[in-house]
């Protein structure tokens, strides 16, 4: 039962006890088959993103106008040189999908780092301190939330011009507000709980209460949300590329490939199917891993 309460109670200063909680969580994670599959998918995407030039020797931008819209190799007309077929410019789809993982990985991680840091901090402070701090953060969130997020990102990209950094900034700026909403709501409920009152009575500073007592208790909510947000960032980036507002066409990206493939939906379905599958599988891996982390970090919730 000791570990069952560990996810709920504020962490003790005893380093040894904390370490064993984390080891126990990792063990639980390793026993969850869905989480292991998720971790494996994430690992494959990471390997593709890091080692793309070593995995495939083909230039992702190499055009071959004598071999356009070749179907996948298992369909009549396909061949082994192009496992998943080629697009309208004769570029190899599999090669471009492998290279496309780079953009998705970079965007997903950067956006969560930006959005999570800003959002969790703001949410904790607003929910715990209330008063004018809460009011100011709430006003900024209100303005941000009142924006249709896609339209905001589209407008930002339209102003600054498409590019990887613009895309990251635009999505990061739409991301933090999600954390604020959830963390603030959770904190507002948590601050009425006995362990916070106890910490206050013991003379703990606000900073300490937020960092040591509230943050660990919103941790699992933030991890679940963080996976949603990595996923959302990858999908969001591909949507911007799909609208023609993402990374430049010379950089292979899954969304850009779908934008090309869309025009050949009725004749060459593979150009619209495989890049989308790549997005779905990658995002699914992140989601499965996040689900597993959630269960592992919060054993009280698992039956």
């Amino acid at each position: 039962m000791a570990t069952a309460f560990a996810g709920v109670a504020p962490p003790r200063d005893d380093e040894f006890a904390q370490a064993s909680v984390h080891v126990a969580a990792l063990r639980r994670l390793a026993r969850d088959p869905a989480a292991v599959i998720g971790a494996a998918i994430v690992a494959v995407v990471a390997v593709c993103a890091i080692f793309a030039p070593l995995i495939t020797r083909v230039d992702p931008n190499a055009q071959d106008l004598t071999a356009t819209l070749i179907p996948p190799m298992w369909i009549a007309g396909g061949n082994h040189a192009h496992v998943l077929g080629t697009d309208n410019l004769g570029r190899d789809l599999l090669t471009r999908i492998i290279w496309g993982s780079r953009v998705s990985a970079i965007v997903g991680l950067s956006v969560v780092a930006i959005g999570g840091t800003i959002g969790v901090t703001a949410g904790l402070v607003a929910g715990y301190r209330r008063g004018w701090v809460d009011a100011v953060i709430a006003r900024i969130t209100d303005v941000q939330l009142a924006f249709p997020l896609v339209l905001l990102a589209v407008a930002i990209v339209a102003v600054v011009g498409p590019g990887l950094l613009t895309v990251i900034a635009a999505i990061g700026l739409t991301s933090w507000v999600q954390y604020v909403r959830v963390v603030r709501a959770e904190t507002m409920s948590l601050r009425e709980r006995e362990f916070v009152a106890a910490a206050e009575a013991a003379g703990a500073t606000s900073r300490r209460i937020i960092a040591r007592h509230l943050l660990p208790n919103v941790g699992s909510a933030v991890i679940v949300l963080g996976t949603f947000e990595i996923a959302r960032a990858i999908v969001f980036e591909s949507s911007l590329s799909f609208l023609g507002l993402g990374v430049p066409p010379t950089t292979p990206s899954w969304g850009g490939m779908l934008a090309d493939g869309r025009q050949y939906l009725d004749t060459a379905w593979w150009t619209a199917l495989f890049p989308g599958l790549a997005i779905m599988v990658a995002v699914m891996g992140v989601n499965l891993l996040g689900d597993g982390l959630r269960d592992a970090l919060d054993p009280a919730a698992v039956n």
């Binding site: 949603f228 996923a231 999908v235 591909s238 949507s239 799909f242 969304g255 779908l258 869309r262 939906l265 009725d266 379905w269 619209a272 199917l273 989308g276 997005i279 779905m280 599988v281 995002v283 699914m284 989601n287 499965l288």
Partner: peptide
């Protein structure tokens, strides 16, 4: 839920159209 969470909206649209 996993499929819906993981697939981009516009791609679901494209696949439904297909």
């Amino acid at each position: 839920a996993l499929i819906g969470q993981s697939a981009p909206t516009y791609w679901i649209g494209l696949m439904l159209i297909l």
